[in-house]
Design a protein around this nucleic acid. Sequence first.
DNA 1: CTGAAAGCGCTAACAT
DNA 2: ATGTTAGCGCTTTCAG
Lengths: 336, 336
Amino acid sequence: MKTATIKDIALALGVSVATVSRALTNKHDVSEQMREKVLDMAKKLHYKPNIHARNLLKNKNNMIGVVVPEFITFFFPEIIIGIQEVLNPLGYQVLICQSNESSTLERKNVEMLENQMVEGLIISVAKESRNYELYERLASESMPIVFINRVINRLNVSKVIIDDRKWAFKAVEHLIKCGYRRIAHLAGNEHLSITQERLQGYLDALKAYDIPIDECLIMHVGVQQDKGKIGLNYLLNLKQKPDAIFAVNDPVAVGVLLELKAQNIKVPEEIAVVGFSESPIGKILGLTSVAQPTSKIGEVAAQMLLEKIQEPNSPPRTQILEGQLNIRSSSLRKKH
Amino acid sequence: MKTATIKDIALALGVSVATVSRALTNKHDVSEQMREKVLDMAKKLHYKPNIHARNLLKNKNNMIGVVVPEFITFFFPEIIIGIQEVLNPLGYQVLICQSNESSTLERKNVEMLENQMVEGLIISVAKESRNYELYERLASESMPIVFINRVINRLNVSKVIIDDRKWAFKAVEHLIKCGYRRIAHLAGNEHLSITQERLQGYLDALKAYDIPIDECLIMHVGVQQDKGKIGLNYLLNLKQKPDAIFAVNDPVAVGVLLELKAQNIKVPEEIAVVGFSESPIGKILGLTSVAQPTSKIGEVAAQMLLEKIQEPNSPPRTQILEGQLNIRSSSLRKKH
DNA sequence: CTGAAAGCGCTAACAT
DNA sequence: ATGTTAGCGCTTTCAG
């Protein structure tokens, strides 16, 4: 049973397809009784509009593509919900892809979305992303793009972030004010924007409080939970162990906490820990962390994308949202 | 700058659009030199195929719709990844929607996906879902549908589940074998399939071991973490408190564990706890739970959907996957 | 191997 | 208020 078209309705009613089309879509230009006849027949024939035809005609499909590194942890899902809450009510559908932290899969996803002719893209890059040229081409072909969280700095497109450097500073400053002096940093993958900014904030804080920087205390471990254990064990093997650890994000910090617990090392008495991008697990474990306004990030990104779609020539903007340092038991004041 | 079409290529080359189309898509029926000329010109003009036109012609768009209650916790995201791993390599795109546990939003999502003319649907219903008629209509209009995890039993469509009743039985049996006798059940929303099955498994186990059923020990609290606290406090106020709790799922069990900790009640010495659908947080907290093969569920659902798409008249099947009871510290053998 | 032409389902001038 | 017609970009007969 093939699905009915407006032609079928027109034929059944002995009117033209144009009339049917108008009755089905327009507000005016059609008599009330004709409209009713058409609507009745449409229902009778189980008519459903063919969106492909409309898409072809308008040359748009109300689709937005989203590419994130993963959506297993709470962080990106909350952002995505923020995106959908802005876009769905406007009739946009969101195509969600995850790169699984792979540069190649990220590129494939973006190219797939491009082939689908999405009207815009919201992207957070994989930890190993090497797709600068791809994004540059898309931007030059005036594909509306907004980057979130993990951005590419030298790319002149819109971005939604928090001030990672500032909040890393505040996190480390908090440790310093609690009396910790030998503060290690488990950093993320080297070329990620969040890695660089948070590392810089860490360095800023040490400098601001005249604490000498010890390169031994900085290790690039990555952004995933299992890397916390590796980083911790490296730090524990130093001649001079740290008395506190600032991790690039909550997953790494949680990995550290779990390993500390496994080794029966007291937190924060022996080692304090601070994370970043507050997670539910971190919260439960009493992890001090910088909270990000996740769904707000999504909402703002969606809004900026809409602007760019409606005003293709508007210049790229970078929106910096506020964070918040939430202090918990993993970083209490040091006893002397 | 409007994007180039095959017409532009044809014009530039002085050939017909048919030839260009063939060169661009067909394997045969075009000379090698013509093909090269066309491909060169296509690149030169930055030609990109218009997928809307193709969709209209084939009357399909390689889209699959997925509706889940939420994707904040790990559970559905892992399933979705399983789905994408099967479908993406075949050129399908997956439209992911979340109902936020709302029946209304669920319906809106499904209708939106229907309007998008997706080729099939994979669905897990909201806790308050009342959309039986909707799904019945879709099924009768031969929309391929596969339900996962939270299904509608009386609906004659394909399903992918684990044997919730059996695994609930095993979970409760484990508690009984550990020496617990006064076992409470914090059940989910009443009409959810998982609620009914797991409750039945709980009852089966008590009967099998001749433990009297006490209705006071059964409370329908829902499926979300904050409900664990409510359920626990109800149970703690009973004259005869339980010595163990079987929760409908991990979020509720985690809520229970956190509240027990807040009240300084020892687990499992004073109260043992068992969850369902093993979660990362549960694991960290030492929660005994039934693990579900999440990404397998997604893969199997995707495969069954593909079958249904390719063989529209194939009868609905229910695929039951294996679970696993993982015993942790929240339910150790009771000391006498 | 290539071209002409029809048509996928719908909308929107342009007529009447 | 309604009908006629031309296309949106592409694929696919059908001819040559």
